[in-house]
Design a protein around this nucleic acid. Sequence first.
DNA 1: AATGTCAATTGACACCGTGTCAAGCGACAT
DNA 2: ATGTCGCTTGACACGGTGTCAATTGACATT
Lengths: 204, 204
Amino acid sequence: MSSESEQSKAADTPTRILEATVRILEAEGGKGVRMSDIARETGISRQALYLHFASRTELLTAATRWVDEQLGLEERLAPSRHARSGEERLALYIELWGNYIPDVYGVAKALMLAEAGDEAAASAWRDRMLAMKDGCRAIVEMLAAEGRLSPLLAVQPAIDSLWTLMLVPNWEHLTQVCGWSREEYIERITLIARQMLLSPADQV
Amino acid sequence: MSSESEQSKAADTPTRILEATVRILEAEGGKGVRMSDIARETGISRQALYLHFASRTELLTAATRWVDEQLGLEERLAPSRHARSGEERLALYIELWGNYIPDVYGVAKALMLAEAGDEAAASAWRDRMLAMKDGCRAIVEMLAAEGRLSPLLAVQPAIDSLWTLMLVPNWEHLTQVCGWSREEYIERITLIARQMLLSPADQV
DNA sequence: AATGTCAATTGACACCGTGTCAAGCGACAT
DNA sequence: ATGTCGCTTGACACGGTGTCAATTGACATT
């Protein structure tokens, strides 16, 4: 038993690169991070990066997948999936994202920035967003089935609205610009989502 | 009377550059527009651009100001300012932005993209957003003064929420990705904003 | 007609960041 | 000793921004 498991001291190079990447992305807020920065942080030459990742975009998308794994996105998703009412599911989903986004923000931001101009990055990001849309759809359909969806909103627009509400740029704006804390974000977005989606009757 | 007024056939070069810039930005959706593209569209050499605008960023910000003027942003703002209730003001403000954003989108997008990495562009964009926040504040304070603001939301979070809701990336996502029409956007965002901000009692 | 001025032109170049290529080197295995 | 794997150094092409110098052509001034 040994060298190819979780937190062994000397991980293999690709792993060390990914670790260095998220470390630096987290620190810099994903801003103008260059391949040479990542190389220096990893402790290898810039060219060696290309021995393991074909391009900056590929490295970035690998880094987001890596972070998802490290943070156990799938396991975290479970509670929301097992919720027994749409209302509960909505609350759990928002709480999940509100706690998840801060941890992936650095990497996500870098990917979003690369998105402009780079078709590969754009579609990598699109995939993530589509996955998140499915979560929104599940919630809205559950609410609709329970007859608790606001009569003012059809199912599709409701999905779109919730999906949009939870997008990263909104989280970014509210927490970075408006100064909301993680807890405030979760609490207030949950409130807004409830008012937006639920029948006026039973919002309390 | 004559050469230095509105739509004279042969405008001066800076104006022709701005016209060409918005034309091409509109067409390309603000994506990867280069200085050489703008020069070609204007019908002058790339270097000549720098005779009139010190940098790409400066040209871009000048272009957004120019578009604002052309579209008469100030005049358009008037109806909302003269609204006699917070509720009315909210509706007019959203309608204004819903009709305004599509016209500035190309240029705005280019500025938003430049924003990443370029401090000058970032602050130009920040200014615009702060102006828009003032509009949101006016609305929320009016609602609060009338006692119609939802008891679930304090004034400041209410301003932040409305401000965030109306951000360009949300408009972009709803219209470009979700496929909402301009009218749908205005109608539904108005609805959402009302449910978010107004006391449950009198939302109808 | 000679002169100056001004806008624009051409062509060259520096700087940066990404991505590519070739040659070399040390450690480890066979 | 031979190979080969992972990495190194150093060089370079490309594309985009921004700068510089020398030149041209049109229009006024005298």
